[in-house]
């Protein structure tokens, strides 16, 4: 698949999200350049991706040829200056504003006048990241959800100075590659993380006020049509990740009371009960 506007694509950061987005783009036929500053991280995550793909081959979901082609479409580059000719670069490095600002500043010196720079941040201000770049009107957010290969939603986030023209072109392109874009104004938590907050925080209030117990809240909300109740969902997401999202939205809105996290989220994290990944969260799990 090709597109006149965005043909030469690059990803920065080969973590779960970066490599996930690269895998998705390769799966729809694009060649993707990827830059990762840590060779150890690249080796680990690349072999994990290949392992996962070979499992799919074993299960007959992918042919050996398809797997080989998909992997060949993802190229590791050794320097940011190799990204000079790109149409679109998606940044997916660590969620640290200083790191991202430094990267966008550097990148904007390297790339051409027409390159779009996108950040996959889930919590930082697109406007702040953009301000570090030489051409902030060409910076926007592209928030993919984990796992990027499967999850259809992409939040296309418009910073304060992002040009509407680029918002429209990127949105159109996201549609063409088979995802569902939604345009969102740059604001704390963007759309999904913000609107989903009450689902998580109110559940803590229900139990701490003794109005219901955890299993009961989950049962009732499942009966109302939710795939998972808030407590089992938090165990899947990770108590720490969910708390970080709560705190980030709360701070972003300057302590708006609707978003105030609950101290029991904090206690859970302090106790090391982080959810499925530690075998214990709201509920216990056999490893």
């Amino acid at each position: 698949m090709t597109n006149d506007t965005f043909h030469r694509l690059a990803i920065i950061g080969a973590g779960t999200m970066g490599l996930g987005i690269a895998e998705f783009l390769a799966s729809v036929g694009y060649n993707v350049a990827i830059y990762e500053s840590s060779s150890k991280a690249w080796k680990n995550n690349w072999s994990r991706l290949k392992h996962r793909l070979s499992k799919q081959v074993e299960r007959g979901k992918l042919t050996t040829k398809e797997m080989k082609e998909l992997c060949q479409r993802i190229h590791l580059v050794s320097s940011l200056s190799d990204l000079r000719e790109m149409d679109l670069i998606i940044e997916a490095v660590v969620e640290n504003i200083e790191v991202k600002k430094e990267l966008f500043s550097q990148l904007s010196q390297i790339v051409s006048d027409t390159t779009i720079l996108a950040s996959n941040t889930s919590s930082l201000s697109i406007t702040e990241i953009a301000a570090a770049a030489a051409n902030p009107e060409r910076v926007l957010g592209l928030h993919f959800f984990n796992p990027a290969v499967k999850m259809p939603l992409v939040e296309v986030i418009r910073g304060e100075v992002t040009e509407l023209k680029w918002m429209e072109e990127v949105t159109q392109w996201i549609k063409e590659i088979g995802k569902e874009p939604v345009q969102v104004a740059d604001s704390p938590g963007f759309l999904v993380n913000r609107v989903a907050r009450p689902f998580h925080i109110e559940s803590y209030r229900l139990i701490s006020e003794g109005l219901a117990d955890k299993a009961q809240v989950d049962r009732i909300l499942r009966a109302a049509g939710f795939k998972m109740g808030p407590f089992e969902l938090q165990d899947l997401i990770g108590i720490d990740i969910n708390l970080a999202a709560s705190v980030s939205v709360y701070r972003g809105f300057f302590a708006e009371p609707r978003f105030r996290p609950h101290y029991r989220q904090q206690r859970m994290m302090e106790s090391g009960a982080l959810g499925r990944k530690t075998g214990k969260g709201h509920f216990t799990y056999e490893s």
Binding site: F145, M151, P152, L153, E155, E180, V182, Q183, V184, L191, V192, V195, A196, F199, F226, K227, M228
Partner: peptide, 12 residues
């Protein structure tokens, strides 16, 4: 878009 995002992003 709000409705679409909540259905696809969090499985509502």
């Amino acid at each position: 878009d709000i409705d679409l995002a909540m259905k696809l992003g969090t499985n509502f």
